[in-house]
Design a protein around this nucleic acid. Structure first.
Length: 223
DNA sequence: CCATTAAGATACT
DNA sequence: AGTATCTTAATGG
């Protein structure tokens, strides 16, 4: 009945008994790139822990535009989901799979039990909250005070962190969607960044130069 | 080849 | 910064 789960990272993160319970009560689900894992207004009955792959979490603004809040990847969880579970609220966010992957859906009835029972689970939940909170602060910062160029830099940097190389595989259109902007605007900004030597543009690919990394952590270096 | 789609360009709001 | 429109370039059948 139950699928055999074997995840070394989980086993290093939690004590043996909890891992056993995770495997027993968690529901292993596979998702494919582009799949909507969670949508606005839906009730959440389980808390997802991402085992593999990357998930983007969106929020709708007042004008109905979607903006990217943060990414979730290996062994990370959505703290929004936790709050929704225990208070039986509807989802405020939408989660879309960036790439194929798998997640472990934890039934909400177990969440509180484990919180009391296992130190590692409590640490994990609090850590998850804290990380997400920091990312949110960062996002607010960018949206409220930053200009588009800064936002694009942050976006490229975040996407770069998730993978590996010094290039990001993404279309201008995709960036525009994620930042609630338009293709032309993103193209303009990227072109300018290219002229200044920060990046090199290709079709569906953006190479990041040294100058980019010098600037990305310094908001004060706009033109 | 041609169809589709990404990206560049220009002009206007 | 965003919209509309057109042109050009890359990609895949």
């Amino acid at each position: 009945m139950k699928k055999a789960i074997n995840n070394a990272k989980l086993e290093s993160l939690f004590e043996k008994e909890l891992v056993k319970e995770l495997y027993q009560y968690g529901d292993l689900k596979y998702f494919t790139a582009g799949e909507i894992i969670m949508d606005y207004g839906k009730y959440i009955r389980s808390m997802p822990v991402i085992l593999k792959g990357t998930v983007k979490v969106f929020r709708k603004d007042a004008q109905g535009k979607e903006i990217l809040l943060y990414y979730l990847s290996d062994n990370e969880s959505c703290s929004m989901a936790y709050g929704c579970c225990i208070s039986a609220k509807k989802s405020e966010v939408k989660a879309v799979a960036e790439e194929d992957g798998e997640l472990l859906a934890i039934p909400f009835v177990k969440l509180n039990d484990w919180l009391c029972q296992y130190n590692s689970w409590r640490d994990y939940i609090f850590n998850s909250f804290n990380e997400r909170f920091l990312e949110l602060l960062n996002s607010i910062d960018i949206m409220a005070f930053g200009n588009m160029q800064h936002r694009v830099r942050q976006y490229l940097n975040a996407k770069h962190d998730l993978n590996d190389r010094n290039s990001v595989l993404v279309s201008h259109h995709q960036i525009a969607d994620d930042l609630a902007s338009t293709r032309v605007v993103i193209s303009r900004i990227l072109k300018q960044m290219e002229n200044e030597g920060e990046v090199i543009l290709y079709r569906n690919e953006i190479k990041l130069n040294k100058l980019f990394f010098q600037r990305v952590h310094k908001p004060g270096s706009e033109e």
